[in-house]
Design a protein around this nucleic acid. Sequence first.
DNA 1: CCGGTTACTGTAACCGGTTACATAAATTTC
DNA 2: GAAATTTATGTAACCGGTTACAGTAACCGG
Lengths: 349, 349
Amino acid sequence: MKTNKDSATIRDVARLAGVSVATISRYLNNGSLVSTETAELVRAAMAELKYVPHPIARNLATKRTNTVGLVINDIQGEFFTPLLDGVIDTTESFNYNLLIFTSKRSSHHDRLLLGPIYTDGLLVFLDSLGENDLRELHEAGHPIVLIHQSAPAGLDIPVVTIENKRASFRIVSHLIEQHNRRRIVFLQGPQNNEDSYWREIGYQEALKDHGLEFDDALISRGDFDRFVAHKSLQTLIQNGVEFDAVFSGDDEAAIGVLRALSEAGLKVPQQISVAGFDDQRLAPFLNPPLTTAHAPTDQVGITATQQLIQLIRQEPTEPVILLPTELVLRSSCGCQNPLHPEDTVPIIR
Amino acid sequence: MKTNKDSATIRDVARLAGVSVATISRYLNNGSLVSTETAELVRAAMAELKYVPHPIARNLATKRTNTVGLVINDIQGEFFTPLLDGVIDTTESFNYNLLIFTSKRSSHHDRLLLGPIYTDGLLVFLDSLGENDLRELHEAGHPIVLIHQSAPAGLDIPVVTIENKRASFRIVSHLIEQHNRRRIVFLQGPQNNEDSYWREIGYQEALKDHGLEFDDALISRGDFDRFVAHKSLQTLIQNGVEFDAVFSGDDEAAIGVLRALSEAGLKVPQQISVAGFDDQRLAPFLNPPLTTAHAPTDQVGITATQQLIQLIRQEPTEPVILLPTELVLRSSCGCQNPLHPEDTVPIIR
DNA sequence: CCGGTTACTGTAACCGGTTACATAAATTTC
DNA sequence: GAAATTTATGTAACCGGTTACAGTAACCGG
C-alpha cells in the first residue's frame, strides 16, 4: 500500500552516500574498516533511507542464518513450556532466531535436510531424531546439542539433561529413612526412556544402600502416563502384591497412582507413601500434594542453548551437563500433615 | 568432514542433465512446463546428485519464505502449550515453517522489521505488539492475524478468539438457576484485557436477565493471578461484603479464591459456589474440582493459522472468528457431591 | 628519496535460486 | 502451405547481500 513497499537496498545507500556497496557492507560488519568520515556519510545515508539490511540475502552470502532450530516431537506435556521458555530467553539474548521443527509427520527427510540450511545448529529433544539422522547431520558438521538423551555411540555430541539418578536415590532414601518404607513400588517410564532408566538405577541403589533387597514384583510400568499407571496399580493391588510406597517415575503417573489407591480405599500417606518426579505445575494440587523432585527444565533449555551457541561459535563445550534436581517434600510421602485444608489449596508452587 | 560438505546446486544438476538451469527450476516449480523426456533426465540427475533446492536462495529470489511467525510475549501460562500445538499442527500440514518471536526485551524495532522479511505472515497473540507496530506492518501489506485481541480501529486485520461473553453468561446463569446464588462476586482480569472485558459483560447480562441488580461492591480485581485474587478475596471478606458465589475470571485466579475461602473457613460449594474460566490442566485437581468454561485454545491456534495462510494466499478470510466455549461442570459450583474422594483425584480432564 | 607497510576504498564475482524475454520447433488454423 | 499459435528450452538479469583482489594514497624507517 505504502511507498515503502520495497525498502532500500545496500546499493541505494551506496549511491546516496557516494561510496561503493563494499564500503557499506564493511561498515555494517566491521566498522573499524571504514574511515571516520566515510562512516558518517554512510550513517547519514542509512538513516535517510531507513535502511535495514536484508537478513536473507545476508544468509545466502555468508551461509550463516543466526537461527537455531528446536527439534521436538511432543509439544504437549508440562515440561515443554519451561523448556521453550529457557530456549527463547537464551536465543533472544544472543540475538538468534528460533525455528521450531516437529517430526510428528514422517516428512523427516524433506525437512531434516532443510534444518542445516535454515539453522546454524539444532537442539534435539528426547528421541525426536533417529540415530541415523543424528549421525548424518553430525557428520555433515552441523552443530547439535542433545536434550534429555545421550549421544549414540561414537558421536561426540554434547548432552544436557538432569541429574535423575541422584534425585531418585534421594527420594527413595527419604521414603526409607524418614517414613520407614520397605516395599517400594517403582513405575517405569516409556521404553528406552533415559530419564526413567536412571531413575530406576537410583531406586535400586537406594534399596541396596539401605540393605533392602530388590523385588522384581514391585517393578511395573507407568509410561509417564496417568492411565497406564492407574492400570498398573490396579493390577498390583488385585494381585495382592504388598507394598507401602510408590515411586511413580514421574508426576503424571502419580496422578493415576493416587487415583488407584483412592479407589482401593488405601490412605495416602498413612498407609502408602507416594512420590513423583518433575514437580509439574499441578503437583502441589494433587490430593494429597505430591512429594517429588523438581526438574530444572527452564535451566535445561537455557544451558542447552548456550552450549549450542558455543558450539556454533567453535568455542569449547562440555560433553555432558547434568543439572541438579531438588527434592520437594509435600504431603504425599507423609512429611506434612495432610489434614490441614490449606495444604490442598496451595498458593505457592 | 564428509564430501557432501557443499551440496549440489541447481547448476550442477543442469550440467549433468544437459539442460539449462531454467529448465531445472521450471521442473521444480511447475512440472508441466517441461517435456516428459526432459523431466526424466532432470529427475535422474537430481537423484544422482542428491540435489535439494536451497530454500534460502529461493526465498531471496521469490521474496516468499514459507514461514509464519508467532509473536507472543508470555510463554508461561497454561494456554501457551495448546495454542502452540495447534499452530504447529497447522503450519506443518501446510508445509510452512514456524518462527517464534517474543518481545520480552524491547528490541522490538530491530526484530520487527525482520519479521516481514523472515516470514510471509504473523500471528500476533494478545498485546504482544503495540498499535503502532501493528499499523505499520499492516499498512506495509504484511499479512497478520490477531489472537485474543481485536483489531485497532480502522485496521481490517482478521481476529480469532473465543466466545467469552456467551460462556460467561452461561456460567453465571448456571450459578443463579441451578444453585440459587444471588450475590456473585466477579474478579476482573488485567487492565484492558479483552477476554476479561467480555466476561464481565456476560456476567452483567446474566444478572440482568435474571432480574438481579448489579452491585459494584461485588466487582474486584483478580488480574488472572492467584495472588491478586487471594488478596482481593481476603479484602472482600474482611470488609464484610456478603456474597454466595465467586466467578473468578479465570482458573488461575480461582486458585487464590479457593485458598482465601478455605482460610476464612468458608465451605465450597456448600456456602460459596466458585467458577473459573479456561479449564486449565489443573482445574480438575483443585479442591473442590473447579467448574469452569473450556477454552478451545488448540482450536484457536489451528484456526488462526489457517486464516493466516489464507490471507497469505490472498484467499478470502473471516474478519472475526469466535470459537465456542463449553461449560465444564465440576464440584466447585455445587453440582457434584464433593465428598466422594474420587472427585478430588480425577483421572480424566 | 625510495621500498615497504598500513589504511581505505572500489570492482566484480559470488551465494543459489527465479523468471522475463527470446528463440526455435511443433502444432494448429484457414 | 503460409500464418498464427503453442510448446519447450536457453540466455541472462535479478534478488540483496559479502568478500577476494587490486589499486591508491598516506605514512614510515633508513
